[in-house]
Design a protein around this nucleic acid. Structure first.
Lengths: 166, 166
DNA sequence: CTACGTGCAAAGCTTTTGCATGGAA
DNA sequence: TTCCATGCAAAAGCTTTGCACGTAG
């Protein structure tokens, strides 16, 4: 559990949810697609495409998937509501799970790159009101808060020691 | 005014503010840089780099600026607090004035691309509280709300007529 | 046998950068 | 003379795409 954002119970597995989605589009759940969903949903919270290209395209056998397939599948997973593009770091799109997780946004430290999650009911509430006022049918939002995290704000102990020695 | 977001009084012109900023960095306000600030602050609210490359690199004389200079200057203007990168459309970074304007965020229509501005005191308030709770020193934020605007939600009149004729 | 998928390599795009030239202080 | 800037062309880097080949149904 990260940054106080708790998981919410999930009744259908990501793979099954993806299969459902694919069916509605006349598409198939191939071994490659399944491998990608499993990999992506196994552990990571925030990741970029390259991480999985390195991992999955290096494998042998049924668990393998090429760069193209990975990119194509990530797009499908976003469409399916399983993944969400939450930020852009080093020119790379950053993804995270958007299924079985409480809605949240991120504080992004520009020194260490850490992404701190926080629940966003308040924000969503405000946005719903704003959208309504404008007759805007809101589909979602993407909020990146940038700044410096607590750890990086504190001058490191090493610097102090160094200073003392002068 | 756009989306109910009013301008706030400005005492120093954008060009002068930019000159000040450049001075603190030991840099100069060249004719190219001045042309870019003037162009950018003359009218547009939302724009991308390419728009000004097309315009400014096509000119002759002192008002001209090359692609490189435009990109470099836009970065400086962001650093100087004169511009803000607010969204990404068609893989291009979208800029807007960040000087002499009330703080706001955007509802972005994914059908027509329209960007509807709304004041963001509420949002900022919430974020300040969240940041404080995490000991996070907030520098700014970027909020993109996507969905469909009122106009695009309404089925166009033409469609109705067409239907009636069948 | 038809449609959907994969993998590879190449293309596409925006944005950045190396380098030679030019000008301000 | 010493930096700082510009412009051009090329590079960089992520993501998408054309195409030939496979394969599920």
């Amino acid at each position: 559990m990260i940054g106080g954002v708790e998981a919410t119970p999930v009744d259908i597995s990501p793979v099954d949810k993806f299969r459902e989605f694919l069916l509605t589009k006349g598409m198939r759940l191939t071994p490659e697609r399944e491998a990608i969903v499993n990999a992506v949903y196994a552990e990571h919270d925030h990741f970029d495409a390259e991480q999985w290209v390195t991992d999955l395209s290096g494998r042998r056998g049924a668990e393998r998937a090429s760069r193209s397939t990975i990119y194509r599948t990530l797009n499908l997973l976003v469409e399916a509501g399983l993944l969400r593009r939450v930020a852009r770091t080093n020119d790379r799109e950053v993804y995270e799970h958007d299924y079985g997780r409480q809605r949240h946004d991120h504080l992004i430290c520009k020194k260490c790159g850490d992404m701190i999650e926080f629940p966003n009911e308040m924000i969503s509430g405000v946005l719903e009101k704003v959208a309504e006022q404008h007759g805007f049918r809101m589909a979602g939002h993407r909020l990146e808060v940038d700044g410096v995290c607590a750890a990086c704000s504190r001058p490191p102990a090493r610097a102090h020691r160094k200073l003392d020695m002068i």
